[in-house]
Every structure is written in C-alpha cells, then in structure tokens.
Nucleic acid binder design. Structure first.
Length: 518
DNA sequence: GCGATCAGCT
DNA sequence: CACAGCTGATCGC
C-alpha cells in the first residue's frame, strides 16, 4: 500500500527477545499453522515499508564508553543510561511475566493464542515455574513509535528498551495495565484528567506524571507532541507526533471518530504518514447509531417506564469511567440525582465536570437513578434488595457490543430482557468508532500507512483489516502533503512548552479545562 | 495480611 | 465475537 516514507533503510539486527516471541513481541505458534507465517508477514510488511523501527532497539551490545544520559539523535538509545542519570540504576527485580503478550484486551489477548508458548507460566495442571524463571514480556512493535523513544499504552512490559517517554492514551485498565505505585521506568505523559486518575487510583509517584493540555504542542525528546480530544472516555486523547524530519504520526488510542475531528488543523487530509488505529469495531457487521440517538432512546424509554410505574428504579451499568453522558442525560431529563458508590463518586468528582458533579448524590435512598458496575447487572441481588423500595427496575447496559444485524440503527427494535419486574435494555452506546465511522475517518485522512492496534492477536482478523484499509485507500496516491512548507530546518514548534519541570498539584488542577468531549 | 498477577468468565 | 473489566485463586513479600 504505502510508499517509502523515510528511505531510512532496513532496521538493524533484531533485539534479543524472550523465547517464544518473534522480535515484534508476537507469540510464535507452537503448532505449524499458518498463523505464524501470517504473523511474521504482517510485521514484515511494516518493516519492508521503510519505517525505521530501529530507534527503539537497544544497541546489540551497549558500549561501555557510551556517555550516560540520553542521546538525542542518531545512534541507538540505551535504556541503562537513563536509569543511571536518574540515580535509579536498577532494573525491575522481577520483570513482568509473559502473559497476555498481545498486550491485554485491546490487543485481542483472548483471541490470541490459546496456545501456550515458552515463557508463560502455568499454574494449573503441570509444573509450576518459579517467578525467577519467567521471561519478561516483549513490548509489541505496534506500541512503539518509530523514530522516537516513545511507547503508547505500554506499561506491562517493565522498562522498554530505548523508551524515554511512556504515553497513556486514557484511563482504562487494558491501556494502563502494569502501572502501579512502583512505576519507575520513565515519565508518563497523558491528559490532566488521566493524570489525576493515575495518581488517585494507582498511587503512581507524581514525579513520573506529566499532564499535557489538549491542543497544545509540546516538545518532548525533540518531537512535537499534541494531544487531541478522542471522543472516548473522559481524559482520552489522540496523540499526534511530528518528528524533526517532518514525519507525522497519529495514535488514536481508543476513539470514536466524528465529523468534527475532520475540522482539526492537525487532522487535515494527507498529513499523516502513519496512523495507529483503534480497530475495535473494524468489521462491517458493527453498526450503531450516534451516541445522541442512543441517549435519546434511553431517556424516552425511562420516561415511558416511569409513566407506567412511577416507583421504578433506573439503573445504568458502567465501567470505571465512560458512559457518563447516558446517566447524566437521564438525570437531567427526569430531574433526579445520580447515586453511585463512594469509589465511583470519587472518580467522577475528580473529572472537574461540574455539570456532572452537581448531580451526584451519596444517598442511595434519595435517588431513583443508580449507576452500577456492569457486572452487577448480572447479579440480581442488588436489584432484588432495591425492590423493597421500588416496584420495578429498568436497567441499561450501554455497550457497542449491543448490536444486531437486524436492528442496525433502528433503536426501537431493541428487545429488552425481562424477568419479573426487572427489565434490562442493552443499548448500543459505543465509545469506539463504528465500521462506517472508521472508514470515513480513514478515507478523509488518507494516511500513508495504518497500523491496527486492536484485534491484532488473530492473523485472520489482521488480514481482514488490512484488506479494508487497502480498499479505503485504493486509488489515492500516498504522497503526503508536508504539513509545513518544505524548506530548511523547521522549528519543531511554534508554541514551545517546556517539559521536564514538574508541576505542583495546584498547578495541575488549575490547568484543568472542563472536558469538552463530555 | 496486602498487593500483584493470572485463568476464566462475561 | 469480546467492550473493559470482574472474581477467585495463587504467589511474593
């Protein structure tokens, strides 16, 4: 598909990787299926296309004469130096173990390998390896940003060789997995909202956390970095990188593509060399309506049920963060406060989203609108206990999975599941792009190359996605319009923001801007 | 006991 | 299917 972007030549000799993984962090199949071949051809394809992935590779044998501290450009980056520079000359004592090498759910861990590969610890049926025997996880190549010392959402691999800056796209478990209060592998860059959650919920040391404002260009390790609203959960960001040589990459983290994104000056047609794409629903079978329509449907449904039975408890299922607009809209429409437990209240209040905060109450008795973990919607205990105060329960389970070929965009065709006085509606409220939204986004952007970041654990699924990408980009030449006039050395940034100074908590809070995507 | 991780599950 | 977790078991400290 793409033409050579860099002409930088072939990557250097591969890093030593743990047994059982290829040098991109993909598991080597034990069985002689086509999966192994397809895996390597997938990765090879990216290598062949001329992207220089070598910058994230440590020198084959780190030269002892290498000056401590980081090298800004050229040559290899040696992680060891960074630890020395920080006086943290210590690798983690226990490397993360090789489990879910595909990087957790967002990488399709469960579709990847039911095969177990060497290095994976077995706990059941068989011998148990000791922790010391375990091999470290390899960071998969699609989490690394070529030509930079950056990774995105790569916290479960311990210290990643050559990585000086760890970006966190948003605060969902499958992206921050591995982040704990013991984190000491390097600075973490994310939005201010995500930064607060990382500190509050994971107790990560503030000295490692660097909150960035949306739409502001920062220069980090010589690379211009801008975070953009991702239209996913509060604090979620697209990450835009502009390298010194003019190459431009966009990492979508998790996002829901929208028409308004096309208006962003950094997302103009033909300006992205490499797109790391959230391909969660990159399959034509995933159709769902705009979020507004789903919210409208939930509000209408709630009103209808309340009319029939005024003593109805409305329940909205939600993960830690995300889906706030569903229950906020119901709260506003029905003029009822939102009850949820203390831990979620703490998180929601931390958003600094005043409209939401003022609706939250801590007394379950005084509210007929409750927000629960999605898992509680299965257990009927909670619903049962509340039946003492309410005569009926109407629950919403908002997820992009709630789709049906038949219903498609027709919300009124949704059939709830009912048992007694308890009714549960699965509503197709998605915080990821639908297939058609993905297609429109990609066809607008016309990136030179696309790396899917979700559903990559399965070779067949990767091939299907690549086929879609080819189709979408067919007929367009892949010449990238330089985002800046091609002339002499470009200053990397018009608005330079100093990075490397730790903000005080007060500064970080005052920097907070209300969540535009909410 | 506590925190972290994993298999299994939805 | 698997969103983005949760649960219970297990391990190291």
């Amino acid at each position: 598909m793409g033409t050579d972007i860099t002409g930088d030549g072939e990557p250097s000799s591969p890093l030593p990787v743990p047994d059982g993984l290829d040098d991109n962090g993909f598991p080597l199949s034990n069985s002689p299926t086509s999966a192994a071949a397809a895996t390597s051809s997938f990765a090879d394809d990216f290598y062949r296309s001329g992207i220089d992935w070598s910058s994230l590779r440590a020198a084959p044998s780190p030269s002892p004469s290498e000056e401590p501290g980081k090298k800004k450009s050229g040559g290899f980056l040696v992680q060891r130096s960074l630890f020395q520079a920080w006086g943290l000359d210590k690798r983690p004592r226990r490397e993360e173990e090789a489990a879910g090498v595909m990087g957790g759910a967002e990488a399709g861990a469960s579709s990847a390998p039911s095969v177990s590969w060497p290095g994976r610890k077995r706990r059941r049926g068989g011998e148990v390896e000791s922790a010391a025997d375990r091999k470290p996880l390899a960071c998969p190549f699609y989490k690394k940003i070529p030509g930079t010392p950056f990774t995105v959402d790569a916290f479960r691999y311990g210290a990643v060789d050559g990585c000086y800056a760890y970006f966190l796209s948003h605060f969902h478990h499958d992206h921050y997995g591995g982040l704990t209060k013991k984190w000491c592998h390097g600075p973490i860059y994310c939005t201010a909202l995500t930064a607060r959650l990382v500190k509050m919920c994971l107790s990560v040391n503030s000295e490692y956390i660097y909150p960035l404002e949306l739409d502001k260009e920062y220069v980090i390790e010589g690379v211009a970095v801008t975070l953009l609203e991702a239209n996913h959960c509060p604090g979620a960001a697209l990450i835009h990188f502009r390298l010194r040589d003019g190459k431009t990459y966009l990492h979508t983290g998790d996002f829901r593509a929208s028409k308004s994104m096309q208006l962003h000056p950094l997302l103009q047609r033909g300006q992205i060399n490499l797109l790391y794409l959230d391909t969660t629903y990159c399959n034509p079978k995933y159709k769902f309506p705009p979020k507004e329509d789903v919210i409208d449907f939930a509000v209408r449904t709630a009103k209808r049920y309340l009319q029939k039975e005024p003593k109805t408890l409305i329940v909205v299922g939600a993960y830690s963060i995300g889906k706030e607009n569903v229950y906020l809209a119901i709260s506003k429409a029905l003029q009822v406060p939102i009850y949820t437990d203390a831990s979620r209240r703490r998180i929601l209040h931390s958003f600094g989203w005043l409209d939401l905060s003022k609706k939250i109450c801590s007394d379950s008795q005084s509210s007929s609108l409750h927000v629960l973990p999605l898992s509680s919607l299965r257990h009927e205990k909670y619903l049962e206990t509340l039946k003492q105060r309410f005569l009926a329960v109407l629950a919403f389970r908002p997820t992009g999975w709630t789709f049906s070929e038949a219903t498609g965009n027709q919300l009124d065709l949704i059939k709830p599941s009912s048992r007694g006085k308890i009714t549960i509606y699965g509503v197709p409220y998605s915080e990821h792009s639908s297939f058609s939204e993905l297609r429109e986004f990609v066809m607008f952007l016309r990136p030179q190359k696309i790396i899917p970041t979700v559903n990559v654990g399965n070779a067949a699924s990767r091939d299907k996605m690549q086929a879609h990408f080819r189709e979408w980009l067919k007929g367009f030449d892949t010449t990238i319009v330089p985002p800046v006039p091609k002339s002499e050395e470009q200053p990397i940034s018009s608005v330079k923001v100093k990075i490397g100074i730790l903000c005080s908590d007060a500064e970080k809070v005052s920097n907070f801007q209300s969540c535009t995507g909410c």
